[in-house]
C-alpha cells in the first residue's frame, strides 16, 4: 500500500462520528460498518487529508507501540475499508 496516498469517501458512503466511534453506511448496499475509538481517530486524521504516513507520525506519540506495529494496524484498517468499498485512494 502507498503510505503517501490519501483517502476519500465515495459519494455513496456516509460517515458520522458517534461518541468516540465512527459509523459508516454504504448507501449502495445498505451495509453498516463501525470503527472503534482508535480506528476512529485514525480515520478522522485520514479524512482531513493526511496520508497514512502522516497519521502514523501523529499517533505514535499517543500509543505505546512500535511504529511498525502501528503502521501495520493502520494499513490493515485502510485495506479493510478499501475492500468494503468504503474509501477510495486518491492518486
Amino acid at each position: 500500500m502507498d503510505l503517501l496516498g490519501k483517502l476519500a469517501l465515495p459519494p455513496q458512503v456516509m460517515a458520522r462520528q458517534l461518541g468516540d466511534e465512527q459509523v459508516f453506511l454504504d448507501l449502495a448496499s445498505g451495509a453498516y460498518f463501525g470503527l472503534d475509538p482508535v480506528g476512529s481517530k485514525a480515520w478522522n486524521l485520514l479524512a482531513e487529508g493526511k496520508t497514512i504516513s502522516d497519521v502514523c507520525d501523529l499517533m505514535i506519540e499517543e500509543y505505546d507501540v512500535t511504529r511498525a506495529a502501528l503502521e501495520a494496524d493502520i494499513v490493515t484498517l485502510v485495506q479493510s475499508m478499501i475492500d468494503r468499498q468504503l474509501v477510495s485512494v486518491i492518486k
Partner: peptide
C-alpha cells in the same frame, strides 16, 4: 455506547425500501 445503540436501533427499525438511497440516507 452510542455506536452500539445505533446498530441496535437499525436492526429493530421498520424501513420499507432499503434500496432507496434518499430514504436510507
Amino acid at each position: 455506547a452510542p455506536a452500539e445503540a445505533l446498530i441496535a436501533l437499525v436492526k429493530n427499525s421498520f424501513l420499507l425500501d432499503i434500496e432507496e438511497r434518499q430514504m436510507l440516507a
